[in-house]
Simulated assay, not measured.
Amino acid sequence: MNNPHPTMVDASGELAAKDPEMLDSWWFAARLHDDETTFWVKIHATGLHGSCISTVALLRELDGHSSVRHVPEAIHEVALSATSFDVKTSVLAMSGDLDAMEISGDTDTASIRLSLRREDPVLYNGGAGIFPFFDGMTVQYSLPGLTTSGTITVDGVTREVSGRTWFDRQWAAAGSGPQAFTWLGLDLGAGRYLSVWDTVGDGTSWLTALKPDGTHTITRAQRTGGDGHWTLAIPDLDASLEITYRGLPGAGGPLYTGVCSVTGTLEGHDITGHGYTDSAGRTWERPVVHQLIPR
């Protein structure tokens, strides 16, 4: 797929690991289903200061089954390729290229094996893929609607699943804290995606909107609410979105990850969708300061 605008990031060439001292992140979140069950999945590997943190989380509807593993390891105990996309730790594995990926992860009670295929353009945050972030710059691009198939095994029972996965690739020089953010990645259907950043803490946000033809729009937004529900107003897109969110397993730590259901209007049309949220630090939902963790 051709890029419809200039960027500062070689998305295909930047999947490999960076300097071990940098913040380095490969973040996957998925909404999957079989004939009767919906699953939410997170598989995330983070490198920082010579260590690697792996997270695998699963939430199953409607029974609420959940499980999570969050494992820190020294960088010499894992495999992070500097020449290709190939990440292996004690609880997860990721590999492939920009158009096709394989990811897997294990909790104490569940095993996840997924194949991902790209059909949409790359979403470059800020349009160019690089933007100011607190005391430095961060690089972030997304593959927000990867077509997904595979299996999820819970307590020895294996189900074939399909759905969509959001992948974020992010890296930056390690900054000095305290730092905080709230991020939203929203899949609004029909190839429309929003990546929303709030680093102020009062709901004032900026976002990158991606259309099916690869067009990027960077504009402002305002988020209000809390306690499981937000309203996101985006004047330049004639959009008002109602977002209901809840935490994935393990969301009580320094980095909160939630899953979202979305309804509302966009450019004068009714929409429904889903998405994900991450937050860390001093927001009105989470009044505790933490060092920045990439996501």
Rank of each mutant, 00 (worst) to 15 (best):
S279I: 06
D202G: 08
R295H: 14
I103P: 00
L186A: 09
Q179K: 14
L184Q: 13
G228L: 15
I103A: 07
P72H: 15
P4I: 10
T272E: 12
G225K: 10
L114F: 04
L143N: 04
P132Y: 10
D187N: 08
H65V: 15
A11R: 09
G47Q: 06
M8S: 08
G145Y: 03
S104Y: 10
L123M: 05
G201M: 10
L48K: 10
P294H: 03
G163V: 03
I218S: 03
D108C: 13
D135T: 15
S240T: 14
T217N: 05
S205D: 00
S142E: 06
R223P: 09
L80Y: 09
G226T: 15
L48M: 11
L114Q: 00
V259H: 04
V71S: 13
R69G: 13
F167R: 11
E36F: 08
L116R: 02
I53H: 11
V154D: 07
R118G: 03
G214Y: 03
T37S: 09
L210N: 00
K42R: 15
H274L: 13
Q291V: 13
G252W: 06
G253C: 10
T219D: 07
S12D: 11
W27T: 04
D120G: 00
S25E: 04
G273R: 02
T55D: 12
D63N: 15
G203S: 04
T151M: 02
A11K: 06
D202F: 07
W230S: 05
V161P: 00
P294S: 08
W183E: 12
S205Q: 01
A180P: 13
W183V: 13
G225P: 10
D155W: 14
L114S: 00
S104H: 14
R31Q: 09
T7R: 07
D10H: 07
S66W: 08
T231C: 05
T147R: 13
L292M: 05
F28H: 07
T204H: 02
I112K: 02
W230C: 03
P6W: 12
C52W: 06
A30C: 03
T147F: 12
T46M: 12
D135F: 14
D270R: 15
R282A: 12
G228N: 12
M8P: 00
W27R: 01
I293W: 08
R113M: 06
G189A: 02
S104V: 07
G175F: 11
T199K: 12
T83P: 08
R282H: 14
V139M: 07
A17V: 02
E285A: 11
D198W: 00
L207M: 04
T158A: 04
E21C: 05
S205Y: 01
R286D: 04
F181N: 10
D35I: 04
V9T: 09
T83C: 12
G264F: 08
S261W: 10
D168C: 08
N125L: 14
R31H: 08
S162T: 05
P178Q: 07
R223K: 15
T153N: 02
V200C: 00
E119D: 14
D120A: 01
T265E: 14
G264D: 01
D97A: 15
I130S: 08
F133Q: 03
P294I: 03
M94S: 04
P287L: 10
S104L: 08
Q170F: 01
E21N: 05
R113G: 09
Q291R: 07
G50Y: 01
R223Q: 15
G13Q: 03
Y124R: 10
T265L: 13
Y124V: 11
H49I: 01
L207E: 00
T7Y: 08
